[in-house]
Design a protein around this nucleic acid. Structure first.
Length: 423
RNA sequence: GGAGGGGUGGCAGAGCGGUUGAAUGCGGCGGUCUUGAAAACCGUUGUCCGUUUCGCGGACCGGGGGUUCGAAUCCCUCCCCCUCCGCCA
């Protein structure tokens, strides 16, 4: 959410930013509603001030045994007017709020301007390009031979997009999750948490899954809960409605969660195997930081997510997302894409984002700053560290051997309990 | 699922229709005292909003609604926490 002040003072700046994000928002409508809202509020405040004053007088009069019936009759009229104004104000506030929730965060000045993924900027690459090899297999062929997963059975249980990991595949998945959590806790000063996998509407509003992405989520209607599409939701909401002290920042959390996404409208688009799923596993990093540090923290967060890939020897590249490809809530994001030699394509395994105060404002996540202890919104950031399915694709395809086995990178071996996945 | 008890400022904890935005204690900040510190004492200390911005006013005591001239206080509803019973990995 943007501050109403910013919209009031720099409407053209806000318009330009939302347009660059390929969102259409009626800023003028909000400004008009805001003007109307303040007019009513001023009027209402004056009437309430009068009521407060007279009510006090009535109290005093009654105490001293005087008759106040006439004054009370007058106040009944005023009270009715106040009630009417209050209800108008409530309606207006709700309309403004609902419009504000639909304004995207504005892109940071360093974000490349563009309309879609073609305009993303490649920031850096890591790892060696492998030699062209006609015998190279994709992850489905490798996995089938090693019996790592069974998509047919998964589909029979829950539908397509819900994978069943079997035997060594299940163990490898577990190994990856444990390895990544330990990695971030040991090397990057994160606090581990294990969050709920469902969340309330309010929590989804904080992180901005609602209203824009509501249809992308699974909903448990009976209990008014949503299945989380990412651990970002519970992690960010750990501090909702809080005023923290300056000393406790920055706060870093790491968590594993299953992630659930309906992926409505994306059928048929890169959906085979592990490329796009309705349920997948992810290790997520979330930071709460002071505003002046947030862009430096974004760089660090990205480096921390990269470190996982380097430690596993997976080739990757980093993109700075252009304005049009940035998510609704993000001011700046880096995508980490791993190279899958079997698929012959780059696969996104992480997006590291700075949301500035956008989520903090929605979730009222604040802190007391400086010597005057002024209350300010924190900046929130998050990034995957990383999602397992596409990492698994890259891992299997990168480390496949001619005999069909897969050698595991060294750091993963103790977690898996062997140095290779054998037939 | 059934029966009770609660949700008040950074924390603890009073208030249960009329100078109560809220006693008191702890914590925080400023000061006195001290070589310095502690102790003691004095002062100060919530958030948000409007405005004619060294000022004035309004809202907020879990969320929402209602009663009333007036609500932290009464009523309704939702959420959360605790205790007991039941069920359960």
């Amino acid at each position: 959410m943007l501050s109403m002040n910013l919209i009031r003072e720099k409407p053209d700046f806000v318009k330009a930013g939302t347009e660059n994000k390929q969102e259409t928002v009626d800023i003028d409508q909000i400004i008009n509603l805001d003007l109307e809202q303040r007019k009513i509020l001023t009027d209402l405040n004056e009437k309430r001030a009068l009521r407060n004053k007279v009510s006090e007088e009535i109290g005093l009069a009654k105490k001293s045994g005087k008759d106040a019936d006439k004054t009370i009759a007058k106040m009944q009229k005023l009270s009715a007017t106040i009630k009417k104004l209050e209800s108008e104000l409530t309606t207006l506030d709700a309309r403004i709020e609902s419009l504000l929730l639909r304004i995207p965060n504005l892109p940071h000045e360093s974000v490349p301007i563009g309309t879609g993924s073609d305009h993303n900027a490649i920031i850096r690459k890591w790892g060696e390009k492998s030699k062209p090899d006609l015998t190279i297999k994709n992850h489905l062929e490798i996995g089938e031979k090693l019996a790592l997963f069974d998509f047919k059975k998964g589909a029979a249980i829950a539908g397509s997009g819900f994978p069943l990991y079997t035997g060594k595949g299940a163990k490898l998945e577990r190994a990856l999750i444990n390895y990544m959590i330990d990695f971030h806790v040991q090397n990057h000063d994160y606090t581990e948490v294990f969050p709920p996998f469902v969340a309330r509407r309010d929590a989804m509003l904080t992180t901005a899954q609602i209203p824009k992405l509501e249809d992308d989520m699974y909903q448990v209607e009976k209990d008014e809960l949503y299945l989380i599409p990412t651990a970002e939701v519970p992690l960010t909401n750990i501090h909702q409605n809080e005023i923290m002290t300056e000393e406790c920042l920055p706060l870093n959390y790491v968590a594993y969660s299953a992630c659930f996404r309906r992926e409505a409208g994306s059928y048929g688009k890169d959906t085979h195997g592990f490329i796009r799923l309705h349920q997948f596993n992810k290790v997520e990093l979330v930071k709460f930081v002071e505003p002046e540090n947030s862009y430096q923290e974004l760089e660090e967060l990205t480096v921390q997510a990269e470190a996982i890939l380097q430690s596993l020897g997976i080739r990757y590249r980093i993109l700075s997302l252009c304005t049009g490809d940035l998510s609704f809530a993000s001011a700046k994001s880096y995508d980490l894409e791993v190279w899958a030699p079997g698929e012959q394509q780059w696969l996104e395994v992480s997006t590291c984002s700075n949301f500035e105060s956008f989520q903090a404002r929605r979730g009222k996540i604040r802190y007391r700053k400086g010597s005057d202890k002024k209350v300010e919104f924190v900046h929130t950031l998050n990034g995957s560290g990383v999602a397992t399915p596409r990492l698994l694709v890259a891992l299997l395809e990168t480390y496949q051997q001619p005999d069909g086995s897969v050698i595991l990178p060294e750091p993963l071996q103790p977690y898996y309990g062997a140095d290779k996945i054998d037939l």
